[in-house]
Amino acid sequence: MEIKHTAIAGTLESSDIQIMLSQGTNGIEINLESDVIKQFGDQIKQVITDVIKDYGIDNAKVKAVDKGALDCVIKARTITAVQRSIDATEPNWEVL
């Protein structure tokens, strides 16, 4: 699966995360901004990477601005960003 265009999901409100997804050429590259990057940076990146891989996307640039989101929120926001970036209307139930 290929990303068709840049898409964004989520907000910068407390407990949320803003995910911007765009076309990449070099695997899944994640640029993360978070106050808890030391404690949870790897975990956040893992959740994002898993969702993107589940969609069969191999190359993507991700810009994530975390405001203390829980994993379920990170997952939900990433799914929405992916759906928007591939112009999907139906959720991919297998990913969910």
Binding site: T6, I8, T11, L12, E13, S14, Q18, M20, S22
Partner: peptide, 21 residues
């Protein structure tokens, strides 16, 4: 920071709707 984040977040979304990222 609360209002600041809300404002930036909302402006970013508005621009995203115009395909400006």
């Amino acid at each position: 920071g609360t209002y600041f984040n809300t404002i930036i977040s909302d402006l970013t979304m508005r621009l995203a709707q115009q395909n400006i990222f």
